[in-house]
Simulated scan of single mutants.
Amino acid sequence: MPRHWTAEVPSSVFGLQGSCIVIPCSFNYPEPKIKPSELTGIWFKGAYEVIYHPDSSSIIKDYRGRTELVGDLRQKNCSLRIDPLHHSDKGPFTFRLEIKDHSKASYKDDTVSIAVSMREEVKVGEEVSASCSVSHSCPSDPPLLTWSHSGTPSIQSQQQTNGQWEETSSMTIRSTIADNNQPLVCTAAYRGGKTVSSSKTLNVKYAPVDVKVEGVSSVKEGDSVELRCSSDSNPAAHSYRWHNSRGPLPTMGPTITLERVTRLTEALYCTASTQRDKANPAH
């Protein structure tokens, strides 16, 4: 059996103004031979200001209706909830235990971050696993985590040290070309209206698409004309090949000039490719 009055509370707890905060607290005391019939938990700000008492009339005006003992004293849990948190709620706060027909003692001796993680470089069509974590101090009203990309996220909540909890949202998406260079944003909305966002930009690798040959729309016989091969890819096309119906032409770049065109000049085809992908043709 314990011989001393002891309590475990963090030295400090960080919360968000307008949201709620839970101060984790556990205690012990020299138990009397006869099991106590009634335990009363009281919280003080400073030495004299009562911020929680079972009799609400004993609570100072600024804290009346904002504090709740969420711990079960029978389980030696004295955790206190403050909701909503005000800027002035800086403490120090002290827990006091009173045991009916026995003893009483005060235990005097004893912003927001958000992170998104994912693999940022993927190939088109690959699945991307993203997770978003945020710390908070209100387990009964955790922040709502939302994503800018459609999907079905899973939520996990885990208690940390010093009265903090971590809320994590995980989601898997299948990357598309439209996702390239687009931010994947995670937003945490706290009770009280405060929001915090963080993002990562997707780098989706894909082979050349929309390959086409461009040039002037009309030309006279005997003129010279320059044709340009364009494409959309990530990374950008590394090489271009030109050919006609008879086979490849010596020109290797994205442009080719035809001298003295006639009505018999053949159609040209262009093939674009990156270093890692197969070529895609256009004409």
Rank of each mutant, 00 (worst) to 15 (best):
C25Y: 01
R81Q: 14
S113V: 08
S113P: 09
H283E: 14
S218D: 01
S56V: 15
A237D: 08
K108R: 14
S169K: 03
V219T: 02
C78L: 07
H53D: 15
L264F: 09
S58G: 12
T262M: 04
V261G: 05
A282G: 15
I21C: 07
R241I: 02
N28W: 06
V225T: 02
P281F: 06
D89E: 03
S230V: 15
E126D: 13
C132D: 04
L145K: 03
V261Q: 09
H86I: 00
E8G: 01
H149Q: 13
C132N: 06
A130H: 01
K61I: 09
I60F: 07
K100G: 00
S57D: 15
N28D: 15
R241E: 15
M118A: 13
E31L: 03
D141I: 02
G71P: 02
M252I: 07
V128S: 04
E166D: 00
A7H: 00
G247E: 11
A115R: 14
S245M: 06
P139A: 02
N203R: 13
G125R: 00
T262E: 02
H238L: 12
A236T: 14
K35C: 02
A189L: 10
S37E: 13
R66K: 15
A279V: 02
S230Y: 01
A237G: 14
K200I: 09
S37M: 04
P254Y: 02
T262D: 05
D232G: 03
Y190E: 14
L97P: 02
M1S: 10
E8L: 10
H243T: 06
M1R: 07
P254M: 07
Y190V: 11
R81D: 05
G18A: 11
I99V: 15
R81M: 12
Q160I: 00
P139H: 00
T274P: 12
R191P: 04
E68R: 13
M118K: 02
L145T: 08
F95W: 07
A207Q: 13
S58T: 11
G215F: 03
I155S: 04
V124A: 09
I155H: 03
W147C: 12
R246M: 13
S56W: 08
T152D: 14
T146L: 09
L249Y: 05
V204L: 07
Y48L: 14
P36Q: 07
P281G: 05
S148T: 12
S12N: 09
L268F: 13
H238M: 08
A189M: 09
L184D: 04
K33T: 15
K123E: 09
E120L: 05
E31Q: 08
P54L: 08
F14M: 11
D109K: 11
Y48G: 10
K205Y: 03
F93P: 01
F93R: 03
A105E: 12
I34F: 01
V216Y: 01
N28K: 09
P248T: 11
C270S: 06
H238P: 00
